[in-house]
Design a protein around this nucleic acid. Structure first.
Lengths: 224, 224
DNA sequence: ATTAACTTGCTGAACGTCAAGCAAGCCGAC
DNA sequence: GTCGGCTTGCTTGACGTTCAGCAAGTTAAT
């Protein structure tokens, strides 16, 4: 009979998790170079050397953090896709809902956004070796193609649309300290976030209707 | 009479410039923490200590790099605005041209994009103290408001539209190594860039027409 | 000769990694 | 049941490297 493991006992599983959590927080906050294993240890409540003991090296700890993060993302993509497939709503409403979900997903995961921003600057070399990353992107792309029932000729359009959705949702989160601040926008303001989400969805839907739908059936975004 | 200053003579102005150039390249490539003054000196063709001699400290060199970068940006914004004011074209065409120009501007300045990405992750604390940064954003916003002849009630819409334009142009450049690679897009491909630019302009124009313009006058983007 | 434009040597701090050490649990022998 | 040896979890000290900043030195221009 194993008791719930009091705070002070040995517990490798909990130590591992604590180190992963601390690593995620610190790598997201300060980047790979800006984070020392000593800091990770301190934040995790273990000693200087323990992160190295469990993960072998700083690089491997970093990769483990990325891996765990992207598994969560991939899961979310699959869940979203399943929900879309099961839904009886029309494509526009489904797309609007998906954009809304993605927007919220990112807004709730600043660590994820920042980790990828660091990776983008570092060249994305670590990211390539994290399988769920590519899988998540590819599955999202397939889902969008399927949902929009696009012919093979329009597959480029799906990629562009997906890229635009990601750009629009992502950028305000990544650049709260630069562009948004210069524009005197407070990214914490929930009113801004709501306006923003609506604006993004409108842009995407208008873009989707594009040149072949007249401007009659607008004005209702009945997602959420 | 001063000759064109041969390569080896002393020349503080040229050394300063060389150090600024090297600093810009290295800070953009590796970030503030990842760049050593020794590296800057080597790339600038001077010794280890010279960057410190001219700029006092690493932090001040960094700020000087940002300052020079943003002066260029501010100049470009003002030039663009002047061109728009002098143009007799209709607002849509002017907006399309401005988006196209901004798109190209960013694509030609990877250092600028990367410097700001690093700043975004560092909290933007240095950026705040670089006056041209805020000025450029504010002037771009005013220009957009003026151009679209927006009433005071729609000023939020102008900010959102500007933010969207920036997001759409910026993101593919910043995330060539992460999202684009996962989507199997080659960001170097000129065909992609052209498609992308068109897509962004279409999104923006469709978004602008929004709900009050019918889908008749589309299909021609006669900018460039 | 004096000043400005550099260069070189040095110092102290920070960091990743490795190796040694210690303590807590486990397990079979008795 | 307890004792001795072994493994595992974790800490601490040490080494080599890197770097920013300073100080002292050296060379070129005026």
């Amino acid at each position: 009979m194993s008791l719930p493991l009091s705070e002070k006992e040995r517990n490798p599983a909990r130590s591992r998790e604590a180190i992963l959590d601390a690593g995620e927080a610190l790598f997201a906050e300060r980047g790979y170079e800006g984070t020392s294993l000593s800091d990770v240890g301190t934040l995790a409540g273990v000693s200087r050397g323990t992160p190295g003991y469990f993960f072998g090296s700083k690089a491997e700890l970093y990769r483990a953090v990325l891996e765990r993060c992207f598994s969560e993302v991939l899961e979310a993509v699959r869940a979203g896709r399943a929900r879309a497939l099961a839904s009886a709503a029309e494509p526009e409403a489904i797309l609007a809902g998906a954009v809304s979900d993605y927007f919220d997903f990112l807004a709730e995961r600043p660590n994820f956004v920042r980790l990828i921003e660091w990776e983008a600057l570092a060249g994305g070399t670590q990211l390539e070796e994290v399988p769920p990353h590519v899988a998540a992107a590819q599955e999202a792309l397939s889902a969008l193609r399927d949902e929009l029932a696009m012919g093979p000729g329009m597959s480029q359009d799906a990629a562009h649309l997906l890229l635009s959705i990601i750009s629009l949702c992502w950028f305000p989160l990544a650049h709260a300290n630069t562009v948004l601040r210069a524009l005197r926008i407070d990214p914490e303001d929930p009113a801004f976030l709501e306006q923003r989400k609506r604006h993004v969805i409108d842009l995407v839907l208008n873009g989707l209707r594009g040149r072949f739908v007249s401007a009659g059936a607008t004005g209702e975004n009945d997602h959420d």
